[in-house]
């Protein structure tokens, strides 16, 4: 009986102290960590069309189309299929593809989540945070060659 009363006292204490844990989301934009990974932003000015992001993407979310002179024509990214692993940002040598903190995306059909380079360019910063300032990816580690023979592949 004492245990039951103790439990009831605990919940009553919570009811009376008036503290809540709710974030009133649509009215209040929640705080997001500087490292948070959201929808991508693409900069055509920076991109050198090396296709490393397309290559590293684990589930073929990125599709790059080039003309016969290897000039970039299209940069498509399916933000609905993306698993937000941030490997594309990590491999990009020129910070052309970044993951903003923007986590809000809605559409009526899946197809609308296929973003082309214009749409990717227009993705807004979340609360004006440029993730490049808050993250410092260790590129030295990424381009490591190991201790053995150099592997030029």
């Amino acid at each position: 009986m004492i245990g039951i009363l103790k439990g009831m006292a605990t919940t009553m204490k919570h009811a009376l102290d008036g503290k809540t844990f709710t974030v009133e989301y649509p009215d209040v934009a929640p705080e997001v960590s500087p490292r948070f990974r959201g929808v991508h932003k693409f900069s055509q000015e920076r991109c050198i069309w090396c296709r490393q992001c397309e290559n590293v993407c684990p589930n073929d979310t990125i599709q790059i189309v080039q003309d016969d002179q290897r000039n970039g024509e299209q940069y498509n990214l399916h933000i609905g299929q993306c698993i937000y692993c941030r490997l594309c940002e990590e491999v990009c040598p020129v910070d052309a593809i970044l993951l903003t903190q923007n986590f809000e995306f809605t559409a009526d059909t899946k197809d609308e989540f296929v973003y082309n380079k214009e749409q990717l360019k227009n993705v807004p910063w979340y609360k004006g945070i440029d993730p490049l300032n808050s993250r410092n990816p260790d590129r030295g580690a990424w381009i490591g060659e190991g201790d053995g023979e150099v592997d030029y592949q």
């Binding site: 948070f36 937000y84 692993c85 490997l87």
Partner: peptide, 18 residues
């Protein structure tokens, strides 16, 4: 720490990413 709440992708072979 990792930039994500559930799907961290924080470890790398030979260490961590950040």
């Amino acid at each position: 720490l990792t930039g994500q709440r559930l799907m961290f992708n924080y470890f790398r072979l030979g260490g961590v990413v950040w």
